[in-house]
Write a protein that binds this DNA or RNA. Structure first.
Length: 421
DNA sequence: TCTGGGGTCCTAGGACCC
DNA sequence: TCTGGGGTCCTAGGACCC
């Protein structure tokens, strides 16, 4: 194996034969925090976390000085501040992250057409075809790291291996600002000492189930009989863990992915039992989901309502429609029906709407800025208005002004209405 | 000051059909 | 009168990932 880090950028990548490690996993270091610090370089050596304003927010990113205190992504902000009271809290700016993500992904696209994006800040690259033009995988990785730093001032870490899973583990071990190459013939010696929690798909609960059976390292999993593993964690997971632990990962780097669902959810600042407020939120989310469906040219057939109560118990209820839809009003009616069928409620902490069973639209709907589509938006807005001010107080149609010039996406659903006197 | 928001995948039970 | 097995669809919940 060969490790390269920020102090030692050019040296060790050449010291090992990387020709079998043709899959790269590139991961930006502490991405959200690093982007924020581009504008606030004077804070870079201080503990910084990125988190929303809400009292109920969680840490979405922590820089390395903050991690020294045990602050990590996904822990509640309140806990982070207990661990590190001096931490500086910055609000997230997702537009900026998308911008930098695009810059970085374009560098990847320059290197190989085989790029598989994984969220906003990481990707797999198959560089087996780059050998002639750009050099060995280690050389390609070094090139990527240099370009990312030169063009964005962000640092990233790269793992190079013969499979996706090992490449991802390697990038994690290379962090921050490093490169780790694991040649194919060193895969098992790299994997087997690692704890089971390092396996893809093993979180806290599965880790517990495995360690209770005396399986502590990936090597233990590799040597465990498949059937015993499957009894412990289920058929599919058992098979997958057994394969990964033995260095088998058949997944190739794939560029296209098909979305299976779209949804929105929100956690309230304060738990609520106000049925009107909940309905209004459902309407807002149903519309937002519908807009995303139409923008993508999809329709969905299964409507899912998600509720989390004040005691954190979470339920989902779904209904499958006879016909797929991309109309906010239709989604709202269904989800409202599901909600009302539930009867009485404890205080609600979170509410969400999701559409599943997505397929391509039939082409009848010409887009957001089609006049008919805009009228659907108008109808949804009428519902929002009447939900807020009460039915019978409005003659909605006469109060609405729909501004939707054909083909003008910007104004497509800007709908003005006059609130009641 | 306990626990976000976007998702994917898997399991298990029941209905229903052949 | 009692009872197969396979396959698909639907629903609910939960683990996990970024």
């Amino acid at each position: 194996m060969s490790r390269q880090d920020g102090r030692d950028r050019q040296v060790s990548a050449d010291s090992v034969d990387s020709s079998t490690a043709t899959i790269l996993h590139v991961d930006l270091d502490a991405f959200f925090a690093s982007v924020e610090l581009l504008d606030r370089p004077e804070l870079a050596h201080l503990p910084v976390v990125v988190a929303g304003k809400s009292l109920r927010s969680v840490v979405t990113a922590a820089n390395y000085p903050a991690r020294k205190y045990g602050v990590r992504s996904a822990i509640p902000l309140s806990q982070a501040l207990r661990l590190c009271p001096k931490a500086i809290v910055l609000e997230p700016h997702f537009e900026k992250y998308r911008y930098f993500s695009k810059q970085v992904m374009e560098i990847f696209d320059d290197v190989t057409p085989l790029v598989e994006r994984l969220g906003i800040d990481e990707a797999f690259l198959d560089v087996s075809g780059a050998k002639g033009l750009l050099g060995s995988p280690a050389e390609v990785a070094t090139l990527i790291r240099r370009r990312v730093h030169e063009e964005t001032r962000l640092s990233c870490s790269v793992g190079a291996a013969s499979t996706k899973f090992v490449a991802k583990l390697a990038s994690g071990r290379a962090k921050p600002d490093g490169l780790l190459v694991v040649p194919a013939d060193q895969t098992l010696s790299f994997l087997h000492p690692l704890p089971v929690g390092a396996l893809w798909g093993v979180g806290a609960i599965t880790e517990d189930a495995l360690t209770r059976r005396g399986l502590r390292t990936i090597g233990d999993i590799a040597r465990s009989p498949l059937s015993a593993l499957q009894r412990a964690v289920g058929e599919a997971t058992g098979q997958r863990l057994h394969d990964l632990a033995n260095g088998r990962d058949p997944r190739s780097v794939t560029t296209a992915s098909v979305e299976k669902s779209v949804g929105h959810e929100v956690t309230f600042e304060v738990d609520t039992i106000d049925a009107d407020a909940l309905r209004l939120e459902l309407l807002r989310q149903a519309n937002a989901v519908a807009v995303r469906l139409r923008t993508a040219g999809w329709v969905g057939r299964t409507v899912v309502l998600k509720l989390r109560y004040d005691d954190f118990t979470t339920i989902t209820r779904s209904r499958t429609l006879a016909e797929s839809t991309d109309v906010g009003r239709r989604i709202f009616e269904e989800v409202r029906g599901i909600y009302e069928a539930l009867g009485r409620h404890n205080p609600v902490r979170l509410i969400g709407v999701r559409m599943e069973q997505l397929t391509e639209g039939d082409g009848q709907q010409l887009g957001l800025w089609d006049a008919d589509e805009s009228w659907r938006e108008a109808e949804d807005t009428i519902d929002a208005v009447t939900a807020r001010f009460g039915r019978g107080m409005l003659r909605p149609a006469s109060l609405l002004k729909v501004d939707a010039p054909r083909g003008d996406a910007q104004n497509a659903h800007r709908i003005d209405y006059e609130p009641p006197a």
